[in-house]
Simulated scan of single mutants.
Amino acid sequence: MKKYSIDEVDRAILNLLLQNSDLSYQEIAERVFISPGTVHLRIKKMKQAGIILGSRLQIAENLLGFDITCFIGIFLEKSAYYETVADALEAMPEVVEVHYTTGAYSIFLKAICRDTAHLRTFLHDRLQKLPGVQRTETLISLEERFNRPHLLSDN
């Protein structure tokens, strides 16, 4: 895949969108000092290049009754199980992130559950019964201090 090169204007547009994806082309144009039409074209080019993958809605899961955020390290019996396990994880609504990692775990994931009973059922009845999963380690998050997008800089 060819690396797409962005300039300062593209970087400014991306940083504004990362901070607030609801901004209109007009609002972005006013902050970057270009026309709304130019904003539209640049965003379209970055989408076509695969830099902008879409936009996401963030919600406060805890206000909807999902009080447990946890991180789970999965030890696979062998690395050949990765694709099968990753596909199964993708189908589980509790799982919101999956990473294939180096180090102690083969897979590291983030999951969100209603409460400890839901987490227990998720772990015992579904995750740990997947073929290829040797064992898991679960870390429960007590507080998310911040969650921010990776803003682009020249560095």
Rank of each mutant, 00 (worst) to 15 (best):
K3N: 15
Y4E: 15
Y4R: 14
E8V: 07
V9Y: 07
D10G: 07
L17M: 13
Q19W: 00
D22L: 05
D22C: 03
L23N: 09
L23C: 09
S24C: 04
E27I: 00
E27H: 05
V32R: 06
V32T: 12
F33T: 00
I34R: 15
G37D: 14
G37W: 14
V39M: 03
K45S: 15
K47V: 10
Q48H: 01
A49L: 01
I51R: 06
S55L: 02
L57M: 13
Q58T: 13
I59P: 00
L64R: 08
G65F: 04
G65D: 03
G65R: 07
F66H: 12
D67W: 07
D67L: 13
T69L: 08
I74K: 07
E77N: 13
E77D: 10
E77Q: 14
A80W: 00
A80F: 01
A80C: 01
A80Q: 10
E83I: 02
E83W: 01
T84I: 07
A88M: 08
E94I: 01
V96L: 02
V98D: 01
L109H: 12
A111G: 11
A111S: 15
C113Y: 03
H118D: 14
L119R: 07
F122K: 07
F122Q: 04
F122I: 00
L123K: 12
Q128S: 05
L130D: 12
Q134A: 11
R135K: 15
T136E: 01
E137H: 12
T138V: 12
L139F: 09
I140G: 06
E143W: 01
F146A: 10
R148I: 05
P149L: 04
D154A: 13
D154S: 12
